[in-house]
Amino acid sequence: MSFFRKTSLLVILLVITCSNFQDNDWVHFQKFILTPTENPDTLVLYFTIDQGFHIQSDQPEDDLMIPTELYLQETNTLSFGRPIFPEPEYFYVGNFKTQVFSNELIVKVPLIHSGKLNQNSIFGTIKYQPCNSQKCFFPRELSFKINL
């Protein structure tokens, strides 16, 4: 076996090893986009939800469910409009129907600022209640920082 092949095999095994360990946060902040590029009026946030998991939508039909909520820290010069979440999908638990997000979650947030956006960073938190196909977990919070 060549050195390259052996090294590749070791890397694959290392990845498999790492994937055996799970973390407890199943939502991750990936990236953001300001749109349009000049004088942006919308912040687009990209989150990923681990495969096999889903989170409740922002406006669940059943008031028992805990909705996903996004908070962004406002400043004197920057505030935010109501976040626009994507259309949720239905998840059926027996006869019980819930509206959930899975895989990628893209949230658009209107920016409210006068003049030029002159801020270095924005701090945010997303609160969510995750489930997989067998059970649910306590609500969690993911804090993130956007470097503009």
């Binding site: 469910m65 027996g94 006869n95 019980f96 489930c131 649910c136």
Partner: peptide, 10 residues
Amino acid sequence: TTWCPFCNAE
């Protein structure tokens, strides 16, 4: 828990 869909379904 009250917010658990699995619990409500059961």
